[in-house]
Design a protein around this nucleic acid. Structure first.
Lengths: 354, 354
DNA sequence: GGGCGGCTCTGAATCGATTCATACCGCGCT
DNA sequence: AGCGCGGTATGAATCGATTCAGAGCCGCCC
């Protein structure tokens, strides 16, 4: 059925070594033999067996990318960036989805290890499992994606999420909001929040505290923790916000990601709460659907594809001799859109609270 | 560095065959030897080399999923369904993205063939390349996803897109719309449209024709072909719609997918065209973001995860003896939401054309 | 004519897990 | 004592591509 290099050799009347040379170092083979071999390959429909090649080589021609949520466009954009670099290097990409479940992460890492991938790009689940450390001990390069490295002896590509959280909160404060919600905290949630989310939270807290110190005594922060960082989670949290009596209800929210923000937006609209006039929303990640929402979402933008590209580059570099571990941190930027476009400018008037 | 089964055997004081048995048929090994071997494995941090295993076995423990656009949530939902089935079978999934480019499709299929995957699930690019046929000739099971099989000798999981298109158009006609646009056609586009899109188009056309025959003489269809089936494509097409003088401008659109619909929605809102009052929109696929849009999108819903699940099941079944090729066709359902909720019911009044 | 270098090609050894025919052990039965 | 049998363990052969030391050949120069 499937023919091997040996069949090709037989057909072309040469040795297996020669066939291999045609495949891998054609310049070593005379033109005539080369065409003879290529003809045989075509006639037999020969396809190289990667397993055999890998066995000999000791490692595969692929890298793994492990993400938290394949349904989150943020990660597909990161994947695009990764793919670009990986493709260019002639490697292939194995995309794995964990749904933020440690057990799935573990299983995927085990499979990748068995496949002897050249390296792994991973956005780990909340707790950094020791499976990752174990992989690294086995000599498999690992680069953390959108996550800070716990130690300096490894590569990681991150975003300054404290800054991002601060930008979001300051934006709302500047527009006159005083009662602000952070949606995506970990309070009361079963498992710990992702560090990325903790950072965003910290940034928001810092901004609100600073505002209070600067004289906005009434600035206050409410934290809501949806079950997960999805559109459904956002809807659920928004419903809770709506349940708060108008006098105490936050007038704006910073969401831990855009999926949540879209859910919040949807639920607000559904309940007739006007966005941004009655409730302003800031998302995070600036996924394409944020701008495409009918009330375009103000969002904290990070270079999604660049994150992926950079991570992939670092991973490929790990294999090389003089590699130095790096932890680049990208700076997020706030993109203001309509979802926060009401209210007056800085200081002064804090009128019409809902 | 990496230890092999031989090292484990040495350490445990048994033969390699025994170690292999511990790994694959532990019931053949006595309890004492088994624990001795397992201890050795743990101590050495041994990880089985998949390449070697695959080489011997002749095929890998993975299947490939090749999609048109990983950034389209429709495909990530399909992927989820596939993953579920594939995981349960103890296989792993290799996810490949083609961006509807035949060259990329070809490259991915070649890589999958070299990896000796157990099968391939694919939503092919517009033209059915012969690479797919070639794969099948080599004995690799292939199941088409969201695409009808050209012949009965293969498996394919599809949706009745003619019906879907008709449902969408009938819905708009019932709500009093007469000048309808189909956004996503192939007219004037460089490459042929996807068959799925052609079907949707055909369904819309059929509905409009039927309406005309039924007495709605003024029912008419305009076709717009964006460069690609993305949010950006939708925006571009919407801009063109807005350019049409109000008297001739369509009052509603059926979009080839939800990404386009979201783009259209966004552009309409940006230009102050009220949705649905001045312009109604029907999307296709019913991705999560359709419902989450602030003007929730009426959309033609198909069981996305089920498509994936079913396709994966058929693929796994292909390996089995009595396999019979099947081409299940799912029936789409129209989910009415606000983006089409203006205008009066059936027949009568066709008033206020923007 | 002998020797040497350059160009081709050969074929055996190798990677690591699996498989299977074979061997071994102890025990009960005749 | 001999036979057979279930239960275990062995180790050589195998999968297919790659690699590399070495062989064969040709032409050229001294």
């Amino acid at each position: 059925m499937t023919s091997s290099i040996r069949d090709v050799a037989g057909r072309a009347g040469v040795s297996v070594g020669t066939v291999s040379n045609v495949l891998n170092r054609p310049e070593l083979v005379s033109a005539t033999t080369r065409t003879r071999v290529l003809d045989a390959i075509a006639e037999l429909g020969f396809v190289r067996n990667e397993s055999a090649r890998q066995l000999r080589a000791g490692s595969s021609r692929s890298v793994g990318l492990v993400v938290l949520d394949i349904a989150n466009p943020f990660f597909t954009d990161v994947a695009r960036g990764v793919e670009e670099v990986v493709d260019a290097a002639g490697l292939s990409l194995i995309l794995c989805n964990t749904d933020d479940r440690p057990a799935r992460e573990k299983a995927h890492l085990a499979a990748l290890a068995e496949q002897r991938v050249q390296g792994v790009l991973i956005t780990p689940t909340a707790e950094l499992s020791d499976d990752i450390a174990a992989l690294r001990e086995r000599g498999v390069p690992v680069v953390l994606v959108d996550r800070r490295a716990p130690t300096a002896d490894q590569c990681a590509v991150a975003t300054d999420d404290v800054l991002g959280g601060r930008l979001a909160a300051e934006h709302l404060l500047e527009r006159g909001h005083r009662r602000i919600a952070f949606i995506g905290g970990s309070a009361g949630s079963s498992h710990p929040a992702l560090p990325q989310v903790q950072e965003r939270h910290a940034g928001v807290t810092a901004a609100v505290d600073a505002a209070r110190r600067a004289g906005m005594d009434d600035a206050e922060l409410t934290v809501l923790s949806p079950a997960d960082l999805t559109v459904a989670g956002g809807r659920e949290a928004a419903a809770r916000v709506i349940g708060i009596p108008a006098a105490r209800r936050p007038t704006a929210a910073v969401c831990a990601n855009d999926l949540i923000a879209l859910g919040v937006l949807q639920e607000m609209v559904r309940h007739g709460v006007r966005v941004p006039d009655e409730f302003a929303i800031v998302g995070y990640d600036d996924i394409e659907f944020a701008a495409a929402a009918a009330v375009p979402l103000t969002s904290v933008s990070k270079p999604r594809a660049d994150l992926g590209r950079r991570a992939a580059e670092l991973l490929l570099d790990e294999g090389r001799p003089g590699h130095v571990h790096q932890q680049p941190v990208f700076e997020p930027v706030l993109i203001a859109r309509e979802s926060t476009m009401a209210r007056r400018h800085p200081g002064s008037d804090r009128g019409a609270s809902a």
